[in-house]
Simulated scan of single mutants.
Amino acid sequence: MDWLTKFPTMETSALRDLRKGIDENFRAFTRAWGDTFEWLFEPLRLFLIWSENLMLKTPWPIVLLVIALIAWFASRNWKITAFAVVSLLAIGWFGMWDDTMRTISMIFVCTVVAIAVGIPVGILMARSNRMQAVVNPVLDVMQTMPSFVYLIPVVMLLGIGRVPGVIAVVIYAIPPIIRLTNLGIRMVDKDVLEAADAFGSSSWQKLKNVQMPLALPTIMAGINQTIMMALAMVVIAAMIGVQGLGQPVLQAINNQYFSIGMFNGFAIVCIAIIFDRVSQAYGRRLQKHLEIVHG
């Protein structure tokens, strides 16, 4: 029975050796490929800098007007538009304008990257059950993994800065747009697809002219959830140098500055509500339009 008492020690030793091997191999990988990854993500860094400069260097009345026009044309609701304007004026009055613009620019970049990656992956999943079977477990892990864990490999590869923060945010926020793109395309009525086949439509024509337009409201719901999850990562991303509203909140936590934390938290909530209400209203408008067209 001695092996029963030795087994935990053996298991611990084996596990320790496994962890050591993984850590050493990953360090070797980062030393060998770190510069290559930095080069690959250089366009993302330039895009982020351009977006941030655009938001910060544009006079605030113009930014306010553009956001108000976007809110109005997307929602056609004066209450949502008024809330957006009043919230941004309050944010500016409390001296949080620059941090808010940095946060909005980061969310914009993260959303664009998530759309560019997530929608094609969702389309591939919708067209292949095998692809769906492979990707779904990966998405399950991405959605259940603690958000802090995403920062570890990204920081080891790229160091501390904006680009690692954007990558971590995208990894955390991308699952909803992939899942709902897949769901929206699969939910398209088969009778409509059969009618498209009867007219001799190719697979690309069916996707472009039938499936994507009909799935657009569901895809918009995925974009809405991606934006909300990206905003939820703002404070965590501040831990690795992402500028914006998350850094003052992090400072408030570390130094017990109650007022700074509350004011910046208020700004994050206002931005979240604006993005949420505008994108939801636009999704509802799309749904009604499609019901009229196909009804």
Rank of each mutant, 00 (worst) to 15 (best):
V109S: 13
I115V: 15
W39Q: 13
N77K: 10
S147M: 09
S75L: 10
K6Y: 07
R130Y: 06
D23Q: 08
W33S: 10
L290F: 04
P248A: 06
T5Q: 06
A82N: 02
G246I: 09
A14W: 01
A126Q: 00
W33T: 10
W39R: 14
N25E: 11
Y150K: 07
V278P: 11
A14R: 01
S259V: 12
V149H: 05
I223K: 12
V63H: 00
P176G: 09
V170D: 01
V134Q: 08
K6R: 07
P8V: 03
V249S: 04
P146K: 12
F47Q: 13
L214V: 02
M229E: 01
A237T: 09
S87L: 07
P146V: 08
Y150V: 08
S259P: 04
M142Y: 10
Q143Y: 07
I119D: 00
D197T: 10
T36Q: 13
G200H: 03
L216E: 11
W78I: 04
N264Q: 02
R31W: 12
W78S: 01
I274Q: 13
M101K: 02
A221E: 15
Q280H: 14
P175I: 02
T226L: 11
P120R: 12
P146C: 05
D99S: 15
T58G: 05
L65C: 07
G165V: 03
G95T: 13
M233I: 03
V63G: 03
L183M: 01
M233E: 00
N254K: 07
I160E: 06
A232C: 07
I236Q: 03
H289W: 09
I174T: 08
N224L: 08
D23S: 04
K6E: 15
W50V: 12
M229Y: 11
P120D: 11
V269C: 12
S259I: 06
K288Q: 07
L48E: 13
D23L: 10
V154R: 08
T30C: 11
